[in-house]
């Protein structure tokens, strides 16, 4: 249970960053941290004690295996996360070129 709580704390740290930071780069990093915590929680939830990875090896087909389904879900989620990060970086660069700052409060003021 302690592991679940720690994973939730990691998520809350990311949420804190999104809510209080005013620098666009910090916000992008916080979103990444929240994504890590969500991925990790799915895998933690699927772990079975004394089981092995879900990849069969010759002669050891009958061992107990962990659940492969959440791993497949998280595998696709990691890839999408990177694509989203690239998109956010592009948006941040575009905003910087227009306003010469990464501070979102100043950006809001300038937009008028």
């Amino acid at each position: 249970m302690i592991v679940y709580i720690l994973c939730f704390v990691l998520f809350l740290v990311g949420l804190y960053g999104v809510l209080t930071k005013r620098d666009l780069v910090k916000i992008i990093l916080s979103v990444g941290i929240m994504g890590y915590a969500a991925n990790l929680f799915l895998i933690l939830f699927a772990y079975k004690s004394d089981s092995f990875y879900p990849i069969l090896t010759e002669g050891k087909e009958n061992l107990s295996r962990v659940d492969p389904l959440p791993q497949a879900l998280v595998l696709t989620s990691i890839v999408i996360e990177l694509g989203t990060t690239a998109l956010l970086v592009a948006l941040a660069i575009k905003l910087y070129q227009k306003y010469k700052t990464f501070d979102i409060t100043k950006i809001r003021r300038l937009s008028g």
């Binding site: 690239a86 660069i93 575009k94 910087y96």
Partner: peptide
């Protein structure tokens, strides 16, 4: 991203 100049350009 590497070709984009963050200081000027693109505006």
């Amino acid at each position: 991203l590497a070709k984009t100049n963050i200081e000027n350009g693109g505006e």
